[in-house]
């Protein structure tokens, strides 16, 4: 007499329940970088990276890539000759060169692509690299000034690796874990995919925000948001 509607029950019970059971408030533990005065400071000295035994080529490449990227970002931050606007522009440019913008842009769009007209989609693809760079830049700006530890890289799959780094937060001397997710493209180039700050993925949270904006106000509102943030 009874049988179970499994699929939607799974959707209702599993997906919301199991995962949501682990949710917490981002505001409780998200650690934004402490604001520091614009004084000339020496670039953050990176501690020697931990040596991993038998590191794979991708892990080595990833570690080298992130080391170089952090170096470039630190140089931009510590260049006292730059105005705040110029510093921000240089940070964004550095990140834009390092990121897999197209793939990130596609990820951020998700299923909202269906809600976009062709012209809107084209505009989105133009705006999103600048937006992503601006988002990453705002999170990384203060961190790269702190004492940095570059940890080991760990390969996740044939094309991706995670490089673990740690920043010592000046405000309370607590460690902020920043994990860099990188990917190796078809032409062998290493690119940045995501930056986890204490486990938080700005791309995932942005994708959620994008979905909410498109659902509430349409794709046009998303374009407006991108323009505002990128400028």
């Amino acid at each position: 007499m009874l049988n179970l509607g499994i699929r939607r029950m799974v959707f209702a019970l599993i997906a919301t329940g199991i995962v949501v059971s682990g949710l917490t408030c981002a505001a409780m533990a998200q650690t934004p970088p402490a604001k520091t005065p614009a004084t000339k400071v020496a670039p953050a000295k990176a501690a020697a990276p931990a040596k991993s035994t038998a590191a794979t080529p991708l892990e080595k490449d990833a570690q080298a890539f992130i080391g170089a990227l952090i170096g470039d970002l630190s140089a931009a931050v510590s260049d006292a000759s730059l105005t705040p606007t110029a510093r921000s522009t240089r940070l964004r440019a550095t990140l834009a060169r390092a990121m897999a913008s197209e793939r990130i842009g596609t990820f951020l769009l998700g299923e909202n692509k269906a809600a976009a007209k062709p012209a809107e989609l084209a505009e989105y693809q133009n705006l999103v690299p600048g937006f992503i760079a601006a988002e990453f830049a705002s999170r990384i700006d203060d961190l790269v000034e702190q004492k940095l530890t570059i940890g080991a890289a760990k390969q996740r799959n044939p094309k991706e690796a995670i490089v673990k780094t740690g920043f010592l937060r000046r405000r309370d001397q607590t460690t902020v874990a920043v994990d860099w997710r990188v990917t190796k493209s078809a032409n062998g180039k290493i690119q940045l995919l995501d930056v986890y700050v204490n486990g938080v993925s700005p791309l995932v949270t942005q994708r959620d925000d994008f979905s909410a904006i498109v659902k509430a106000d349409g794709f046009g509102a998303l374009i407006t948001r991108l323009k505002t943030r990128s400028s």
Partner: peptide, 12 residues
């Protein structure tokens, strides 16, 4: 997206 967003914010 909402579930994953909330999960990510919960990581710290």
């Amino acid at each position: 997206d909402a579930t994953m967003g909330a999960l990510s914010r919960a990581a710290p």
